[in-house]
Amino acid sequence: MSRWVIKGIRTGIVTTRYPEKKEETPGTSPGLPEQVTGIAPENRETESRCPTGALSREKNRLNLRQERCIHCFRCSRGTENPIPWKNGFEWAEIRNPEAVVPASLRHSLHIRVVDAGDCGACLNEIKLLNNPYYNMHRLGFFITPTPRQADILLVAGPVAEHMKTPLLKAYEAMPAPKRVMAVGACALNGGVFGPGFVTGSGVADILPVDIEIPGCPPPPLAILHGLCLIAGQLKNEPNAATGTRKGEK
């Protein structure tokens, strides 16, 4: 046992300082396409390559609907006119401002994760929130095994048909006030699966979503940012065009 203690101590502190400091380590986030201007109106190649309609055209400007982006890189690779990508991960958007936790309670929030048909990537990123690198416990977030104690229902996946009932039951089992957080493109709009005979078009179909975290999958930092936002630990400064925000204590 003592060897484990020594091992742990020798590893030192690897935890990110986010949200107090910026986190820009390469590989922590895939980033998102940037908003581009100055594209000839007839040149529709780039946006047509986007399989989910995340890029939309407004005259000579290419807008990004970040909740639709699934990081397929088709707008930046294998095309004549690649559009640049921008780093960052602060993509979360609050849909219901009233759901932000009041100041007195914001440093202890319990999260029940529900996998509603997730591919495993979002869940893995959620799991990594407990990783020493991210360690969400330091900010007062805890994953709980029962929705009875949960403040936040964190849902990933497009809501597969068979998961509708369990998801609703988990939501109903939560004490009020209930907050629902949709994580990942699938949970926001069905992602690559979309509405169909066994998949829905996201969590909003059956539950009121309070905060959305885009990404496919959103990296742990993006989820952490979302958690801080809903907990009221950060101020929400939407900048949807670039999909980036400044972290602020």
Binding site: G27, I70, H71, N131, P132, P219
Partner: peptide, 26 residues
């Protein structure tokens, strides 16, 4: 915790090298 550190580092290698932590779109 120790294994989780390694897993995250492997993900960061993927992310830094290919742009995506889970090698999507590659």
């Amino acid at each position: 915790g120790q294994c989780a550190i390694l897993e995250e580092e492997a993900l960061r290698i993927s992310g830094a090298l290919t742009g995506h932590r889970y090698l999507f779109g590659l």
